[in-house]
């Protein structure tokens, strides 16, 4: 029982960050229909920016967090502006190949800039964990969990409740009609990609201090994000959120009670099962591509 409680606590915390990764990608992959292989690199970019500000420049932890996210948004906007703007209307395969190229280029640039040696970021929270009966949780992880939930809620509100959110949804439902209604569709494309990228950078900046930072950390983050988006249904923020938690629980309980060697397989097995019965994902929208 004690063990189950600890597993559940672990899964909740991890689920929050999975959800954060998932909602960032669901905006880009689900709504924009860009198979975004750079998502994981934005994640590691966020983590490296956190390292640069906290450890090299010595800035305040919270200030660094904000800066890392802002820089992530800027990098996302740049990727959209330089690469994707020219590919508007290109088929999904062309865009995908360009994004694979961007992913490899970004990862190798990180390696060149920071070397392959892992970096660690000191967090301002106490090293001793919070102990609640049989469960212990690190303060840093708890902080990450809370910020992740806040960001998820804020993103949801932005997409559903603001004019910008409405313009985003309109643009990706029907570009021409949105343009005719006076929506600046080029800016909307950039804004959506930048927002999704910013969320990936936020996940990286939050998790950098929990884990260590090295150039390939984005690979598994990227893989999980795609799985979560497909699981939850493309373009659905509640779907990505719940999908993140489902994946985390499947992995945690699978590893804890079945076999840790198949930890990642558990998550994907669950996804296969869900897709067999609900091919559009849990929170299906009308169409799906890719």
């Amino acid at each position: 029982m004690d063990q189950l409680l600890q597993h559940a606590a672990n899964a909740m915390i991890i689920g929050g960050t999975y959800a954060l990764l998932g909602i960032g990608l669901t905006l880009i992959f689900g709504i924009m229909k860009v198979v975004n292989f750079t998502h994981g690199e934005l994640y590691s970019f966020g983590a490296y920016m956190m390292y640069a500000w906290v450890m090299l420049i010595g800035a305040d932890f919270m200030v660094s967090l904000v800066l890392a996210v802002v820089l992530g948004i800027a990098l996302g906007a740049l990727v959209e502006f330089v690469l994707l703007r020219r590919l508007r209307g290109a088929d999904i395969d062309t865009t995908m190949l360009v994004m694979i190229g961007a992913w490899i280029a970004m990862q190798n640039t990180e390696q060149l800039a920071w070397s392959g040696v892992a970096k660690s970021i000191v967090s301002p929270f106490p090293a001793d964990p919070l102990v609640l009966g049989p469960v212990s949780i690190s303060w840093t992880r708890l902080f990450v969990f809370v910020v992740a939930l806040v960001l998820i809620a804020a993103t949801y509100a932005l997409i559903q409740r603001t004019k910008l959110g409405k313009a985003m949804r309109a643009t990706f439902q029907d570009r021409q009609a949105a343009a005719l209604m006076g929506v600046q569709i080029n800016s909307i494309h950039t804004a959506t990609f930048a927002l999704g990228s910013g969320l990936a950078a936020a996940a990286g900046a939050l998790l950098g201090p929990v884990f260590v930072v090295y150039p390939t950390i984005g690979d598994s983050a990227s893989l999980k994000a795609f799985a979560i988006v497909i699981l939850g249904g493309l373009g659905s923020i509640p779907g990505a959120t719940i999908g993140g938690f489902i994946l985390a629980f499947a992995e945690e309980l699978g590893a804890g009670y079945v076999s840790s060697g198949y930890r990642d397989a558990m998550g994907f097995l669950l996804i296969i099962l869900i897709l067999i019965f609900k091919p559009t994902g849990l929170f299906a929208q009308k169409e799906r591509i890719g």
């Binding site: 063990q3 930890r263 990642d264």
Partner: peptide
Amino acid sequence: METMDPKATDFSAQLTSIKA
């Protein structure tokens, strides 16, 4: 006897089982 994927970063599940 627990294992971890060579790319994994979170081992809380494995360590919880080991602790128990």
